[in-house]
Simulated scan of single mutants.
Amino acid sequence: MTGADWVRSALASMPMPQAPSASPWDCSAAALIAPRLPPGVRRVAGGLDRFGAVRLSPWEIGIDTTRAVPWQAVLEVRTRPLLDVIATTIGEQAARFAPPVPGMRYAANKVLPYVASTIASTLLVSLLDRREGAAGAQVPYAITVRGKLKPQITTAGPVSAAILCLPQVSACLLTTAGCYGIPIVGAQTTLPPGSVHRFAERLRDRAIQAAPDDPATRAPEPRRGGPAFRSRPGLHDPMPGP
């Protein structure tokens, strides 16, 4: 099963958000990545949320934050062309998630290939699902929120950016923002025409290169050391007990 197949399977197991939002919806790194992890590192599943999460509801929005904010506090939503977001996200995930990372414990370094593969696979799914519309698609990547002293800008990290590129998620966020009268500020594309096929090929290559072996065919790995980071319950998958 390819990385894109894994992502499609994970997305098929959860309802996708409506446009505009009609009920609370969330998607996190844990929801997409935890089912793929080999048994030896599944105990860190709760900590995967540190890599990103998107929360949408008729009342609140959350991007890479521990607490969602009311839509009334959002001053603007910023969008960028889909291909520009993909280009940026590819670079960020290559820099941040290319294992092994010195100083990180064994379990964390074992998780990173799955993070990188899932990011690339999610971007590939969003690109393929848009078909001809991919070249001109605008997707949300940041929100400006009213702060105590000055406005605060929250920009999606690699995992959340990939989630926001999914057509249903993008449509939900932008349509709900429109219902609240929130300005949507778009950016012009910086990429030449004809980039879609080139990006699809790069994403396939990236997903294949980053994809670990199918955990279903691997024997359980021996436990080494303690948890890679302090785990907390994921949005979808509660952390197993010790």
Rank of each mutant, 00 (worst) to 15 (best):
G147I: 05
A29W: 02
P58Y: 10
A31K: 02
P102M: 07
W59N: 10
Q138A: 11
R131S: 14
A95C: 11
A120S: 03
W71E: 12
G40C: 07
R130E: 15
K150V: 12
Q93K: 06
R78N: 07
I90L: 15
A116W: 01
Y106R: 03
L75R: 15
P81A: 15
V77R: 15
Q152R: 14
K150D: 00
I153L: 03
A29R: 01
M104L: 15
E60Q: 14
V85W: 01
A137R: 01
A94I: 15
T122F: 11
E60R: 12
T88H: 06
V115C: 11
A134V: 05
R130T: 07
R50L: 04
R78V: 04
P35N: 07
V111P: 00
P35K: 07
A142C: 11
D64W: 00
I33Q: 11
V115S: 06
T88L: 04
G52S: 04
P158W: 02
A30S: 15
A137I: 09
G103W: 12
P39Y: 02
A68N: 06
P35D: 07
D84T: 04
A98S: 11
S117E: 08
A31W: 10
P99N: 03
A22T: 15
L112C: 11
S28L: 12
A107G: 14
R67D: 12
E92D: 11
C27T: 13
T65C: 13
A116H: 10
V101H: 05
D26I: 12
S117I: 08
P81Y: 06
I61K: 07
A87R: 07
V125H: 09
V41Y: 05
A29T: 13
T155H: 03
P151E: 08
T122W: 03
G147Y: 10
